[in-house]
Amino acid sequence: MKVRPLSASAALLAGALAVSLGAVPGHAIEDGGLSSAVVGTAPPGSVLEQAPAPGALTGLGIAPADATATRVLYASTGARGETTSVSGLVIVPNAPWRGPGERPVVGVSPGTQGLADRCAASRLIESGHLNDATWIRQFHASGYAIAMTDYEGLGTPGDHPFADNVVLGHNVLDVVRAARGLGLSATAPVFLQGFSEGGGATAGALELAPGYAPELRIAGGHATAPTGNLTAIGERSELDLYRPLLLLAVGLLDDGAEASGCAPEGLPRGLTDLEELGPTEPEREPVRVSRSRIDVPFAVTSAWADEIVPHDTVREAVEQWCSRGSRIVYSTSWAPSHVASGYEGGGQAVQFFDDVLRGRVVDSTCAWLF
């Protein structure tokens, strides 16, 4: 496999933020497939196909009697405004909701674990290899319904627009709409949560919701290490095992490089020597977080020792949100790595959502941080 040197690539990583990735061709639920004509007539959030997903409960360690899991194929909005099909997973506890009001829904945006269709979160969860499974179990145990997106191009045919927080934000909001199409209340409070690429997707969804999905009752959000500045990520020297995945993600490898595996075991060999890696032309302008005000309580966490998403880039995004009048609760942690920060931050999300749901005071940190 031929690759090019990385030395000139850092400046191009931002431009490659939304570059499309060639995903391994996938299939709709039950291998049924859908024609583009059928997908093109569906409003965003429409359920196109659905199927029971008992394997997801097994992978999570949840007893079949305790929840109902459904894989969905739903309509969403792509990078050029076109209607696309996206897969996802909806899990609803069978026990009655014991909190205030109606059972809330959490729109989960998973972190990146690979670029092939078999790396889609709804498939990884069945094998017990999904990082986000830890906090999904916590949401279930607390009685929340879960609507998780696989993102465009992961689990379905087509390209995955890595870290394009507009497209991914659409995907997140539309999987919540799809959950309503499966019978969840149209007036239930909605929370959004994500880690890494999922953190960026969560932020994008929160920014887009008032205009794109005004009917959703968004109550709050939580993001850990949200991606928003791949230039800074590309300049890190500590990426080690993660760097090949990043390079694949932003398109710095020749077209012949296949991303058919899921991290870490599926990363191509021979890509840890960076001397022969280098630039490629970006296909689109960068899409960043912190473009507009967020009107609901939004907790953002980052780790000082994060070797993938620099702490400073998260703080910069928070500062921009604060400057626009957003209600941000920002915190840092001493988690020793990027993945560890996800576990720590994801574990805080349930408590934060519970506080918002029960009307406990959630003070913004903007006034004393910036």
Rank of each mutant, 00 (worst) to 15 (best):
H311P: 00
S46Q: 14
G278Q: 14
T202H: 02
A11K: 02
E126P: 09
A257P: 05
G261N: 08
G114I: 03
A120D: 06
E265M: 06
T149R: 00
I91E: 13
T112Y: 00
F191K: 01
R118Y: 10
G40D: 05
E283R: 15
L124D: 04
F195E: 01
S127E: 09
P210S: 10
G33P: 09
F139W: 13
G155M: 11
P297V: 07
S337F: 03
P157R: 08
N165R: 06
R236A: 08
V175Y: 00
S323G: 14
L73T: 12
T280H: 12
T272H: 15
R137K: 15
A225Y: 03
S290F: 10
R293V: 13
V250C: 02
G261R: 09
G143D: 07
P157L: 09
D254K: 07
C366R: 06
E215S: 05
G78R: 01
S364K: 11
W334Y: 14
A303C: 02
F352D: 11
A205N: 00
H160Q: 11
P310S: 01
G114D: 06
G345N: 06
E126D: 08
V318W: 12
L12K: 13
S109H: 09
A69G: 04
F139P: 03
G211L: 08
L21H: 14
I29R: 14
T149Q: 01
P93D: 12
L239H: 14
G81D: 11
V105D: 09
P226R: 05
G200T: 07
